[in-house]
Amino acid sequence: MLKLGVLAIQGAVSEHVETLKLALSRLSLSGSIELVKRPSDVEKIQGIVVPGGESTVIGRIAERMGLLKVLRDKIENGLTVFGTCAGAILLAKEVYDAKIGKVDQPLIGTMDIKIVRNYYGRQKESFEVDILIPVVGSKPFRGVFIRAPAIESVGSKVKVLATYEGLPVLVQQDKMLAATFHPELTNDTRIHELFIKNVLDR
């Protein structure tokens, strides 16, 4: 049976659990969702979601718990991962803040992308807009951008699956998927289904 995990240190954990459950049922798959809080939890799962929240908080606690290193090793050895917003920041190799510049924060750092935190500004600039993601179908996807980061540049192995105003917002490199918006805050499960397909496709 399929076992999927959600990194459950801080942030929109239950939202991802619910969306994954819905995605599994829409794909007519059975599976369970585990909360990942300890390094040993990573052994049990075939794919992991790194949720939105505050990347500094998730990164610092994950480092302290020894989770960051375990996740880095597992992902480098093929564990399927999907990061949203803060999760995308944690997956990036290079991160800086739009206003403060260089930031010193613990990262998983397995994806060849460069991320700018708080790119669109503060919370009052947060927005919703429809974006086109051809790999999940022609129907537009409602993008919920909350204090969202931007992917400034990507390495040669990274596929850009969607853009907004010319910047990548959904990217994939091997089994790693990263979104700068929050599909878990909509009822649309298509990106979570894509993640599950990545898990199955080994």
Partner: peptide
Amino acid sequence: VVKRGFAQMQKGG
């Protein structure tokens, strides 16, 4: 959604 969503991103913190 973005206003309530901001609060959701604070969860567990």
